[in-house]
Computed example of a mutant assay.
Amino acid sequence: MARAAKRGRPDHGGRGQRQPRSRRARGPVAARTPHHGRRGDALSTAGILEGVRAGRVYIDVAGAGRQLELDAVAGGVAAAMGGTLPAGAPVRLSARGAGAVGATVRPRGDGGELAHRVLAGEMATFDLPAAAARRWIAATVERDGAPLLIGNAIYLSGKLTRRVPARR
Score class of each variant (00 low, 15 high):
Ala2Cys: 08
Ala2Gln: 15
Ala2Arg: 13
Ala5Phe: 02
Lys6Trp: 03
Gly8Val: 00
Arg9His: 07
Pro10Asp: 01
Gly13Ala: 09
Gly14Arg: 13
Arg15Gln: 06
Gly16Lys: 08
Gln17Pro: 02
Gln17Tyr: 06
Gln17Ser: 12
Arg18Ile: 05
Gln19Asp: 10
Arg21Lys: 14
Ser22Ala: 09
Arg23Thr: 15
Arg24Asp: 02
Ala25Gln: 10
Arg26Pro: 00
Gly27Val: 04
Ala30Asp: 02
Ala31Tyr: 06
Arg32Asp: 05
Pro34Glu: 02
His35Val: 08
Arg39Asn: 05
Arg39Lys: 05
Gly40Thr: 01
Asp41Cys: 02
Asp41Pro: 10
Ser44His: 12
Thr45Pro: 09
Ala46Glu: 15
Ala46Thr: 11
Ala46Asn: 10
Ile48Thr: 14
Ile48Glu: 10
Glu50Tyr: 08
Glu50Lys: 14
Gly51His: 06
Val52Gln: 10
Arg53Ala: 11
Arg53Met: 08
Ala54Asp: 12
Arg56Val: 00
Tyr58Ile: 04
Ile59Arg: 07
Asp60Arg: 06
Ala64Tyr: 02
Arg66His: 08
Gln67Lys: 11
Leu68Cys: 10
Glu69His: 10
Glu69Gln: 08
Asp71Trp: 00
Val73Cys: 04
Val73Arg: 03
Val73Ile: 13
Val77Gln: 12
Ala78Ile: 08
Ala80Gly: 15
Gly82Asp: 01
Thr84Ile: 15
Thr84Phe: 15
Thr84Asn: 14
Leu85Tyr: 05
Ala87Ile: 07
Ala87Val: 07
Gly88Pro: 03
Gly88Asn: 10
Ala89Trp: 15
Val91Phe: 01
Val91Arg: 01
Ala95Lys: 00
Ala95Trp: 00
Gly99Cys: 01
Gly99His: 03
Gly99Val: 03
Ala100Arg: 04
Gly102Val: 14
Thr104Tyr: 01
Pro107Glu: 02
Pro107Trp: 00
Arg108Val: 07
Arg108Lys: 13
Leu114Lys: 04
Leu114Arg: 03
His116Val: 01
Arg117Pro: 04
Ala120Tyr: 09
Gly121Cys: 04
Glu122Tyr: 00
Met123Ala: 14
Met123Thr: 12
Ala124Gly: 04
Phe126Ile: 13
Asp127Ala: 15
Leu128Thr: 09
Ala130Val: 01
Ala133Gln: 02
Ala133Ser: 08
Arg134Gly: 10
Arg135Ile: 02
Arg135His: 09
Trp136Ala: 11
Trp136Gln: 11
Ala138Glu: 07
Thr140Met: 07
Ala146Ser: 05
Pro147Val: 06
Ile150Asp: 07
Ile150Met: 12
Ile150Thr: 06
Asn152Leu: 06
Ala153Ser: 14
Ala153His: 05
Ile154Gln: 02
Ile154Arg: 01
Tyr155Gly: 02
Tyr155Ala: 06
Tyr155Phe: 15
Tyr155Asn: 07
Leu156Thr: 00
Ser157Arg: 13
Gly158Asp: 05
Lys159Glu: 15
Leu160Ile: 05
Leu160Asp: 15
Leu160Met: 10
Leu160Cys: 07
Arg162Gln: 11
Val164Trp: 09
Pro165Ile: 12
Ala166Pro: 07
Ala166Lys: 12
Arg168Gln: 06
Arg168Met: 07
